[in-house]
Amino acid sequence: MTTVTDQHGHHHAPELRNSTSDQPQGPKAATTTTNSCAWAAWRRVDVAEAPRQDTRMRSRTAGMWWGAAIEAPEPGALARFYSELLGWPIGHEEPGTSIIAAPQGSIYLVFQQAADYRAPVWPPVDGEQRPMMHFDFQVGDLDSAVADAVALGASLAAAQPQENVRVLLDPAGHPFCLCLDED
C-alpha cells in the first residue's frame, strides 16, 4: 500500500477507494446517546427527511477514503490486534506506523507510535488522561464477541454502564465498545 505523508507527519492511503458504490459510506447522521451505541442512533435516522445546508467540504466526493489515526506505544501490535478482531487486512507497515483497511473499501485506521503515550482512564477520572475517542462495533452475540476480543488481548473494563454494551480495553488501553442491537 502506498502512503502519502502530510505536513503534520500523518500517513494517508490515497488509493483506498470504494469501488462498489458511489454512495457515501459510514454513519450518515451520527448522534450520541447515553442509552446505546452511537451507531444505533444514526442507523434509525432518515437523512432524506432532515433539512440540510451544503456545508460539506466541496473537494470531498463520494468514494473518497477516510480514517482515523490512533496513537499507541507499539503501533504494529495494536494494528495486528484490530486486524484480527475485525478481519481487516494490514495494508501497510513501516517503523512507527501501521495501517489496516476495511475490505469494503474506503475506511482505514492508522496506528502511529507515540513516545510519551499514556493510556486513557475508563471511566474518566478528573486529572487523568481521558479517552478522546472510542470505537463502537455492532455484534450479533455479546458473550462470544467479548470472549473473542479477550482471547486476542483485550480486557473487560470494570465499569459496564449498559446491559447491551460491553466496554473493553484494547492492548494499549484504549476503550472500545461491543454493542448488541436486537431491534
Rank of each mutant, 00 (worst) to 15 (best):
M132I: 13
G76P: 00
M1F: 08
E163S: 11
V110L: 12
G91R: 13
Q104P: 01
E128T: 10
M133D: 12
D22W: 08
R166E: 11
H174R: 07
P123E: 01
D126H: 11
S83P: 04
G9A: 03
W88H: 06
E71T: 11
V165I: 12
T5G: 05
V146H: 06
V121P: 03
A114E: 15
P123C: 07
Q53P: 10
Y108T: 13
S19H: 13
R17F: 08
A145S: 14
T34K: 10
A101P: 05
D148S: 15
L156T: 14
G96P: 12
P103Y: 12
V139D: 02
W66C: 09
H10D: 15
V47G: 05
I99G: 10
A77I: 00
G76D: 12
E94Y: 08
D46Y: 01
L178N: 04
G26F: 01
L168F: 11
A38I: 12
R52Y: 00
W39V: 08
Y108V: 15
P131N: 06
P123Q: 03
L16V: 07
M64C: 01
W65A: 15
T3C: 00
A30C: 09
Q162T: 10
D181V: 11
W65S: 15
P131L: 06
H174Y: 03
R130K: 13
L152E: 05
A48D: 01
R44T: 04
L180T: 05
D181R: 06
Q160E: 11
L152Y: 04
T32P: 07
L85C: 10
G9N: 03
R17S: 08
E71S: 07
R58S: 13
W65C: 13
L78P: 00
Q104E: 14
D116I: 02
W66H: 15
S19N: 13
G63P: 06
W65T: 13
V47P: 00
P75Y: 08
S83V: 05
L78C: 01
E94L: 00
K28W: 03
A157L: 00
Q138I: 13
E182K: 15
D46I: 03
L142V: 00
R56D: 01
D46R: 00
A102S: 14
P131F: 02
Y108W: 15
E128D: 04
P103A: 11
F81A: 03
Q7P: 01
A102W: 09
G63W: 09
A69G: 09
